[in-house]
């Protein structure tokens, strides 16, 4: 095992948190989208994370693999759309209601903050690995 294994693990975490951030941004951007390619209003997306043994990273002395993380899938939230009364809207149904996405901006903001903090923690872990490597390079000076 080398320092690059630890950095690869941290990098997998950073990539996962970045994906969460992108998905939250996409949800916020589409909070009012009533028309999508597959028909109907935009459906909220959420990231499903899964811990994985990273290929290419070495194992610990006792033969255990270290676990990184990967985005298993980006799943659509099938909760019912938000119905708003707006008979003048081109997408209003016979009763005058328009189906808006099942996106709650407050939830998305919370998700963004969580992802951002988790990203910071990952950066800390990675810079610690760099710091350790530097103190190893200092040996013999």
């Amino acid at each position: 095992m080398d320092f690059f294994s630890a950095m690869e693990v941290s990098a997998s975490g950073l990539a996962a948190e970045r994906t969460r951030m992108n998905v939250a941004a996409s949800n916020l951007a589409n909070a009012q989208t009533t028309q999508t390619a597959e028909g109907g209003p935009y459906k909220r997306k959420s990231v499903v994370l899964q811990s994985v043994e990273l290929t290419g990273t070495e194992k610990t002395t006792d033969g255990q693999a270290v676990s990184g993380v990967k985005v298993q899938q980006i799943a659509a939230d099938n909760a019912a759309p938000r119905m708003e009364y707006d008979p003048g809207h081109p997408q209003a149904n016979a009763q005058g209601y328009v189906a808006y996405p099942n996106v709650n901006p407050v939830e998305e903001m919370v998700d963004m903050i969580t992802a951002s903090r988790a990203y910071e923690a990952g950066v800390t872990a990675m810079s610690t690995a760099v710091n350790m490597a530097q103190s190893a390079l200092g040996i013999g000076k």
């Binding site: 095992m1 080398d2 320092f3 294994s5 630890a6 950095m7 693990v9 941290s10 997998s12 975490g13 996962a16 948190e17 969460r20 994370l49 811990s51 990273t57 610990t60 002395t61 255990q64 270290v66 676990s67 990184g68 993380v69 969580t114 992802a115 988790a118 923690a121 990952g122 800390t124 872990a125 990675m126 610690t128 690995a129 350790m132």
Partner: peptide, 15 residues
């Protein structure tokens, strides 16, 4: 060094 990799894995799997 190995322990750091293990702990970094915990941070990566925060969520």
């Amino acid at each position: 060094r190995e322990r750091h990799a293990v702990l970094a894995g915990n941070i990566a799997n925060l969520d």
